[in-house]
Nucleic acid binder design. Structure first.
Length: 480
DNA sequence: AGCACA
């Protein structure tokens, strides 16, 4: 049945359960899509707002015949398929199922994550953002920040419906020119849903607003946004206490992984979440405890200490303005230990690592360390040559139960750590393919499961090669 | 108005 008037060039028309719909209104919702299609059968999946103009969609029927019935119906109907008065063109898709890679950003919520492409933070004021998004409903809160992705804003609406109308209307579009400085070329908005439901705005500032609370203190100096606390008039840090600590790491000669942070901070209580990021070329980490008291103890104990002996990776701690971090459960830069499966994921993500139950908390390591003579790590673990990192390996956490005092050890030395910490000698034999040197470029910790000089003789797993190139001066573990 | 990779 080749309709002579409509050339079916290029696209073959083999029937498929999946229909491709085009010329939809760009605001078309999934509900409207379903309304249009459900008379013909059971819809098992949809994907709307597809394409650069968001005016295409896919609908997948449970049965091929249902799709055929819809296509046939509109092929012979005098009334075209319509959504909001627009004629919708329907064809068989050239695929046979809808793959819904619904990324987290596609899961609707009341908070939008808006990336403003092609501008710098100073180019778009929070008032302009507020103006633009207020067109769709009451904007409760806005937080802006700069990330690798560019200038971003979290915008909180009352509900997911309002947020989604704003998203549908504005995603891919631009802020009107007259609201922008002249030097700004194009400025496209990329909008996804945030997993946040309620933003934690502590100040009215040029970076953040809470429109529900006009009495919120104004903080004109809150330039650093989420990272740095404000400084009060007396010069003292004016930081409200928080259960989340912000750690800035100075003199970072060695890689500091999530596991390292976890180990260090677990000495004071349960670490719930960790996020590591770069800020102005410096590595920072957010560490979340269940309560302020624990955070305060950790802060007091660790402030000014070094993770590694010799002044490496010196910690500066302050209270974050966050109270609950929103982090990926398991990535190389973040961890959420409150998710039960996180340890499982960790194991899966690190082949060769045995499934030792992570010791989220180590009560033995909870004392305070008033003295400064040892690095923080030395204080916590009693044993820490810089870069001598067996104790930091994630797999060690379950097995570590002994604290051997061995300060005064230095990078580059080859310690028989397995003998000094017998508690996890066995674990390391399994866990450690061996590899990097304390003095390697990547640092001792950058390769999970491929650390340092712990290598109980002959116990290396067969077929496992040292991860990476042995740096100069490093005695090879697999010497031959 | 013409096929998705987030």
């Amino acid at each position: 049945m080749s309709t002579s008037g409509t050339p079916q060039f290029r696209y073959t028309q083999t029937p498929s359960k999946v229909l491709h719909l085009r010329n939809l209104p760009w605001e078309c919702t999934e509900e409207e899509l379903i309304e249009l299609c459900k008379p013909f059968g059971r819809i098992v999946n949809t994907k709307c707002n597809v394409g650069a103009n968001r005016n295409q969609a896919f609908v997948e029927f449970a049965d091929l015949n249902q799709a055929i019935s819809m296509v046939s119906y509109y092929a012979s109907s005098s009334e075209p398929a319509q959504v909001r008065g627009k004629t919708v063109y329907i064809q068989y898709s050239n695929r046979h199922e809808i793959v819904n890679n619904k990324s987290p950003g596609d899961v609707p919520g009341n908070v939008l994550l808006v990336t403003i492409e092609g501008v710098e933070a100073g180019d778009v004021s929070i008032d302009v953002i507020h103006l633009v998004f207020s067109a769709f409903g009451f904007v409760h809160k806005i937080a802006t920040f700069e990330k690798a992705a560019g200038f971003q804003a979290l915008i909180q609406f009352t509900d997911a419906e309002t947020a989604s109308s704003a998203r549908n209307a504005l995603d891919g579009r631009s802020i009107p020119r007259y609201l922008l400085p002249e030097h700004v070329g194009s400025c496209h908005l990329r909008i996804s849903y945030s997993a946040h439901t309620d933003l934690n705005i502590k100040f009215q500032s040029h970076r953040s607003r809470d429109y529900t609370n006009p009495y919120l203190p104004v903080n004109p100096t809150a330039i650093e946004g989420i990272t740095q606390p404000a400084v009060g008039p007396d010069g003292k840090k004016k930081e409200p206490e928080s259960n989340v600590l912000l750690a800035s790491i100075e003199n970072m000669q060695y890689a500091v992984t999530v596991d390292v942070i976890h180990t260090v901070f677990s000495a004071f209580g349960t670490v719930q979440k960790i996020a590591i990021f770069e800020k102005n070329g410096q590595t920072q980490a957010l560490v979340q405890y269940p309560d302020i008291t624990t955070a305060a103890v950790a802060r007091e104990a660790l402030e000014g200490h070094c993770i590694y002996d010799g002044g490496y990776c010196k910690l500066h701690l302050s209270y974050s303005r966050h109270t609950d971090l929103n982090v990926k459960a398991y990535s190389d830069k973040s961890r959420d230990y409150t998710i039960p499966d996180a340890s499982l994921l960790a194991v899966q993500a690190a082949p060769g690592v045995p499934a030792a139950p992570p010791a989220w908390q180590n009560p033995q390591a909870a004392p305070l360390y008033p003295g400064n003579e040892y690095s923080a790590a030395a204080a916590v673990h009693g044993q820490v040559p810089s870069g001598q990192v067996p104790s930091w390996d994630p797999t060690m956490q379950g097995g570590r139960s002994t604290y051997v005092s061995a300060p005064g050890t230095y990078p580059g030395q080859n310690f028989a750590t397995s003998s000094s910490i017998p508690a996890y000698g066995a674990a390391s034999a399994v866990a450690m393919p061996a590899g990097s040197s304390p003095l390697s470029h990547t640092g001792p910790l950058s390769q999970p499961g491929v650390p340092p000089n712990v290598r109980p003789g002959g116990a290396s797993p067969p077929g496992v090669r040292p991860g990476g190139v042995s740096p100069p001066g490093q005695p090879p573990y697999y010497g031959q």
